[in-house]
Write a protein that binds this DNA or RNA. Structure first.
Lengths: 115, 115
DNA sequence: TGACATACATCGGATACCAATGTATAATGG
DNA sequence: CCATTATACATTGGTATCCGATGTATGTCA
């Protein structure tokens, strides 16, 4: 019943697309960037991250390329495709509509004659 | 992969509490009120509604009372308890923090030196 | 009479997130 | 030198959540 675990649902792909919109990044860096931008309000676990990336790639929204230059472990760098950019725009609109709707209900004027 | 179905996850209880904060209501009316306030952006299905209400009652956040007065099918009217009101306030804050965090990531300044 | 709205309820299926676990490399500090 | 931590990839199984389907029952309206 962890709350932030529940709230993040349905938004993981959108968050990844948002980060990739600005620059290509490898998986681990994507997760860290989401945490940084959200000021650590959102945690992005590995068990979530990699399946999401594979799903986005399968759907043609991102492409990947192994980067072996330099020392350290090889990294898989992801970039947004054209269709991924369009999908992000669509999802950002959906999120806005959804969060506005929640705000309306939470702060909303009650109906005149209840019950 | 219905989107709004995914997005609503983790928020159903909060929405019900929000509606009950303003006045006691029976289940069916709660669902309709959520749809009304959200201008039909949110749908609240029966398969979601009743389990949520039972859960809230089990947790002491709402109480119920059968109303048999008048014609028609008997209705179960729910009211917010004191602890339910406090829980709503807490959840409303959590929601605000969460939606702000998402907004930051979606619209956010990218980190200076990516990759 | 049939369709629709109201009003309760349950169950099973689909899906999503993540803790746990595993492998591997590099850097840091004691 | 050795343990710990950070980086970096990945999978699997458990759990929770929502909702479509289904069922029962009453009242209204064309």
């Amino acid at each position: 019943m962890n709350e932030s675990r529940e709230l993040i649902k349905g938004n993981t792909q959108t968050l990844v697309l948002a980060v990739l919109k600005d620059a290509p990044r490898h998986g681990y860096a994507i997760a860290r960037e989401i945490e940084r931008r959200s000021e650590n309000a959102l945690k992005f676990r590995e068990g979530t991250l990699y399946p999401v990336l594979h799903g986005l790639e399968r759907d043609g929204l991102v492409t990947s390329q192994w980067e072996t230059e330099g020392g350290g472990r090889a990294r898989k760098v992801y970039s947004l495709t054209e269709s991924g950019l369009a999908e992000f725009a669509r999802r950002a609109r959906t999120w806005k509509q959804f969060s506005d709707a929640i705000d309306l209900v939470i702060g909303g004027e009650p109906h005149a004659q209840p019950i």
